[in-house]
């Protein structure tokens, strides 16, 4: 039961702002409960972060950048923060990429128009034409290679 009481009063404990009777009750509980002792210790440490310097260092270009922006604003031309510009470019770039993708996809699709073949003669001639145009190089094996051996087997048959 007192564990809950401790958890409700952690800030008071670490800031030392509890009425004496509450403080005594909590101290008595901490003598007997390791879990709450650990919790108070952890909370105390986390609360210490308020006291620690942020350690933030100013960019050496802070004033230079500021003066540039002031001067630009005086010339009626406010300089946007560079990072803002990039953010707004993102959806535009995404849209442009999609449109370019669609365009190239369409171009690829229209590269070869399928031929309608209606007879076996047409199939043979289409295959021959395809082999002539595209596969001639398959037979260009170097002399003595395994490829040449297989080609010669086919020719013998």
């Amino acid at each position: 039961m007192d564990c809950k009481f401790v958890r409700k009063n952690l800030v008071g404990v670490v800031e030392g702002q509890l009425p004496p009777e509450v403080r005594k009750r909590i101290e008595a509980h901490l003598q007997t409960c390791n879990r709450c002792t650990d919790l108070v210790e952890g909370f105390t440490q986390a609360w210490q972060a308020w006291e620690e310097p942020t350690g933030i260092e100013l960019s050496p270009l802070f004033w230079t950048r500021l003066e540039q922006r002031i001067s630009a604003a005086e010339g009626k031309r406010a300089l946007p923060l560079a990072r803002d510009g990039q953010r707004w470019l993102r959806p535009i770039a995404a849209l442009a990429t999609i449109l370019i993708g669609i365009f190239f996809g369409y171009q690829l699709g229209s590269l070869s128009t399928p031929r309608v073949i209606q007879s076996s003669e047409q199939i043979n001639s289409a295959v021959e034409q395809f082999v002539d145009e595209n596969l001639g190089s398959l037979y260009d094996f170097p002399a003595g290679s395994v490829g040449e051996f297989y080609v010669s087997l086919g020719q013998n048959n």
Binding site: T54, I56, L58, S59, F62, L66, R69, L81
Partner: peptide
């Protein structure tokens, strides 16, 4: 500048954001 940047930083939790906002504060 230290007062402004540290205030922005404590509210934003990010150094770069704090510096950007500090610029806006001084402008």
């Amino acid at each position: 500048q230290t007062l402004v940047i540290s205030t922005c930083y404590s509210l934003l939790g990010n150094r770069q954001d704090a510096e950007d906002v500090a610029q806006e504060v001084f402008i």
